[in-house]
Write a protein that binds this DNA or RNA. Structure first.
Lengths: 101, 101
DNA sequence: TTCGAATATGAATATTTGTTCATATTGTAA
DNA sequence: TTACAATATGAACAAATATTCATATTCGAA
């Protein structure tokens, strides 16, 4: 079979796909997204639950916000984050379900 | 709401999940897995289609083989690789479908 | 057994990435 | 306004990662 005879992903498409998975390729982000998939959380709350520094959490949230996986809502002093991409959450849930082989 | 009141992922579970997505978090591996999801391919064939060096392809296949996402079959001089994890392929297909927003 | 083709592997390197630390910003209450 | 709490941001650093290059291995044919 010759190269041109089958469908392979165009480079930009492959990068788009990889970018989606890259967001889920870090344990910290997995934990954050899993938490946010259950309820809206403030930055400080996430940091407390996951035992991370406020700064580390904020950096990751910034990353997730830039690629539109999470959004936030201000309430006084605090920012409440929540998921903004049901499809990615769906991928996450499936992986969690199948994680134990 | 207090930390212990909601379900968050155990550290090892989060790492398992992240490990799955890490395999899909690189454009090269995405292209390789997408190709293999359609047909069994030799190393040289993959390298030709994806315009990569034989060595780079072999390294990535080694990575994918170690985590049991692909398997191979020897036929004379050549090794034919194919997918060995339908669940991961399912995740990949979904992401490809949804890649264009 | 020798040769050549296909594939694997190890070391080196450049790039990416996650965290920390220090500091800046934003909003609230006094 | 001042002071404080919550969050964001930039620089620096260490660790992880993908590729390249050179070389090793494996198999079939002669």
């Amino acid at each position: 079979m010759k190269p041109h005879e089958h469908a392979f992903l165009a480079p930009e498409k492959a990068e788009q796909v990889a970018r989606i998975f890259k967001a889920l390729a870090d344990p910290t982000r997995v934990k954050i997204l899993y938490l946010l998939s259950q309820e809206e959380c403030s930055v400080g709350h996430i940091a407390e639950v996951l035992e991370m520094t406020q700064s580390a959490v904020s950096h990751q949230l910034s990353f997730l916000r830039h690629i539109r996986l999470v959004k936030n809502r201000r309430a006084g002093n605090m920012l409440y984050y929540s998921c903004d991409d049901e499809h990615v959450i769906s991928l996450l849930r499936q992986a969690v379900t199948h994680a134990d082989h």
